[in-house]
Design a protein around this nucleic acid. Structure first.
Lengths: 235, 235
DNA sequence: CCAACCAATCTGGTTAACCAATTTTAATAC
DNA sequence: GTATTAAAATTGGTTAACCAGATTGGTTGG
């Protein structure tokens, strides 16, 4: 068989066609939750793609809870009905690289909540790691250095203090997209960094004094610039 | 070399140790953004693991934007400083399977927002797909059938109407965990399904009439039961 | 002395062969 | 006929070999 190296985009396209074919197979054969899919080898032959591609597509569907593979046994339709499955796969196929606006919008949403929860649940250990991140940030800014990393760590420390593992996970997931776009659009400037010191302090104090409402309010202030910027860029 | 099949948990443990070693390598060798990592073969030998394991660990770090691999060239440290990198890796290593409470908490947070945004941005097409999902849900409930799937589709339709691709993605990510836990804890009952019809209708009408505040409010009502249940189960 | 070029080498990506556990099948004993 | 058991086929998981593009170092022509 001919070998070829695929770009991320090409590979994604192949994955999507395989996912589509698996969906059609399930629908056409009326497979129900618990039923077994044909083996990976059989699917790769039927679809005319490599077994590796089939495995990758199956892993994606497993990630979203639609399939379930059992070693040395087979791949099974998860305990989720065909209707929900078709709806979810439709969304999965439509997934695209997120736009900056939606990333920022989501980040603000998440962080307003983590700030609030952190104020309710923060331990002394949480408080200390937030303090450390904040001090590192302040030191760098006052020294005229770039401090986006320390900024990020402060916000991650808040997420940890929220005690919500899912929100930490989601924050980590959207972080790369945020970072690359920050570079591309040059969102931060020096002035903002200086202002950021006080804003960070305000958030910290609110969380320290266990005032959820204030914490959320101060976080909102902190994101005001970003919010406006985000809603002014062209779509 | 001896072959062995690993469970998900064992594999995760290996991945974490490899990620740790990669982090230590970057720190010890003072690798900076843009610098090249040793080749996969070299790493696999140095760490005493298979090349496949190394690739998998690299892919994870790439997923979170910490590494960047270029075909036929090498794996590079992404344009993110060592400080942020160490902080993020620490969080990545700590990631665990999310608990039900954090999942529900996050879902409610996301959906209050998607409802609000949907009220602001919904197109007529969005409205129609929401209507379809709602009708399917109502029909099943009135027929005494289980309608969790249709319920899910209605909520996904709202997420789509929000016009925020990132939130759709996050919704899809947390959905599997929600579904499996719903089964495990038997959250839904028939009465709730009946009540759900009216609650869904209220949400739909609010979005239809482009009233963001009302949409959020009705969504909050819809989640009231779930919210209470979630905060009453033992941690 | 430098730039252009070429071949040897190294890289991540891909495939095919292999492994062990499972499942199915068939043969056998009762 | 039925239950039991063993062997053969099938499964997803894993590894080692291979591929083509990128890199590198040395060589050559100017």
């Amino acid at each position: 068989m001919k070998l070829e190296i695929l770009t991320k985009s090409e590979n994604r396209e192949i994955q999507n066609t395989i996912i589509t074919k698996i969906r059609d197979l399930i629908n056409f054969k009326n497979l129900e939750p618990g039923d077994k899919l044909p083996s990976e080898r059989m699917l790769s032959e039927k679809f005319g793609v490599s077994r590796g591609n089939v495995r990758e597509a199956i892993q994606t569907l497993e990630y979203y809870g639609i399939l379930k593979t059992i070693p040395q046994s087979g791949t099974f339709v998860a305990n989720i009905g065909v209707i929900a499955m078709n709806g979810m796969i439709e969304d999965i196929l439509r997934l695209v690289d997120p736009d900056f606006k939606s990333l920022v919008e989501t980040r603000i949403l998440l962080e307003l909540k983590t700030a609030r929860l952190a104020a309710l649940r923060r331990t002394n250990v949480d408080l200390q790691s937030m303090r450390n991140a904040l001090d590192a940030y302040t030191a760098k800014v006052l020294n005229g250095e770039d401090a986006v990393q320390e900024d990020l760590l402060f916000h991650l420390a808040i997420a940890e203090a929220s005690g919500n593992s899912t929100m930490i996970r989601l924050m980590l997931i959207i972080t790369p997209g945020i970072l690359t776009n920050f570079e591309k659009y040059h969102v931060c400037d020096v002035n903002q960094a200086f202002i950021g010191i006080q804003e960070h302090e305000d958030i910290y104090k609110a969380i320290e004094s266990k005032d959820p409402k204030l914490a959320k309010e101060k976080m909102k202030v902190h994101f005001k610039m970003l919010y406006q910027y985000c809603y002014n860029i062209k779509d």
